[in-house]
């Protein structure tokens, strides 16, 4: 079977899988950003309880493997009365895991904003929430955007693990096609190339563009 024939026959399945991977990627990214923001801010808080919760969260999610967390969320959480459907369990695990890494980026990004910016906002008698939202966070975002580009690629790679709880993503479909055809080089090779195109030609250029736009907006182009 030539490679074109292979693609004609099995390409649609791999494409379906790619769409599921894309859906997992976007949902997990949204969750990771939310988790990173909340946990990153909590870690900077003066309140010991908030700070403690975020430290424990970050250490647990960064100290164990994503695969362990995924299995735990999918197989063990139901025993505590929280049953997540596999699709949901997949992006929740990926999002919560990468969110813990993101929290450190948020914290670092905020700490890198010059102290004068805090003082200036204070002297304009802005409320703390307004100061954070209008003055500090936009600058912190610009500081941490390059690192987020790498993190999102890690996140995309993380989504491949959801195949192990039978979410029909690209990885899962590739395994199915492989066990049906035994054309491993073609199947896994195609899947590898799709992941590569996704991260190198979609995620990376998008993050570069976003950084440029943010820079312009803040007059730092």
């Amino acid at each position: 079977m030539s490679y074109t024939e292979f693609l004609a026959e099995h390409g649609p399945r791999l494409l379906d899988g790619t769409l599921v991977t894309a859906a997992q990627f976007f949902l997990a990214t949204a969750l990771a950003i939310a988790v990173a923001l909340v946990m990153g801010l909590m870690k900077l808080s003066d309140n010991w309880l908030l700070k403690g919760v975020s430290v424990v969260y970050i250490e647990i999610f960064r100290g164990t493997s994503l695969l362990v967390q995924l299995y735990w969320i999918f197989f063990v959480l139901p025993l505590f009365g929280v049953t997540l459907e596999k699709f949901t369990a997949g992006f929740v695990a990926v999002g919560m895991n990468l969110g813990a890494y993101g929290a450190e980026l948020v914290r670092g990004g905020i700490l890198a904003v010059p102290k004068g910016q805090w003082e200036a906002a204070y002297s304009l008698s802005m409320s703390p929430a307004r100061r954070m939202w209008r003055i500090i966070l936009p600058q912190a975002l610009l500081n941490m955007l390059p690192a987020w580009g790498n993190l999102l690629i890690e996140l995309l790679k993380g989504t491949a693990l959801v195949a192990l709880i039978s979410v029909a993503d690209l990885m899962f479909e590739a395994r199915q096609v492989n066990s049906a055809t035994y054309l491993s080089a073609q199947t896994f090779g195609t899947a590898l190339i799709i992941y590569y195109v996704f991260s190198r030609f979609l995620i990376t250029p998008f993050m570069r563009w976003l950084e440029l736009v943010m820079r312009r907006k803040m007059g730092r182009a």
């Binding site: 790679k157 491949a160 896994f188």
Partner: peptide, 15 residues
């Protein structure tokens, strides 16, 4: 660096 390790493991094992 930009493709999943788990897929690479399958690739090496099955190819």
């Amino acid at each position: 660096r930009s493709t999943p390790l788990v897929l690479q493991i399958f690739f090496v094992f099955f190819v």
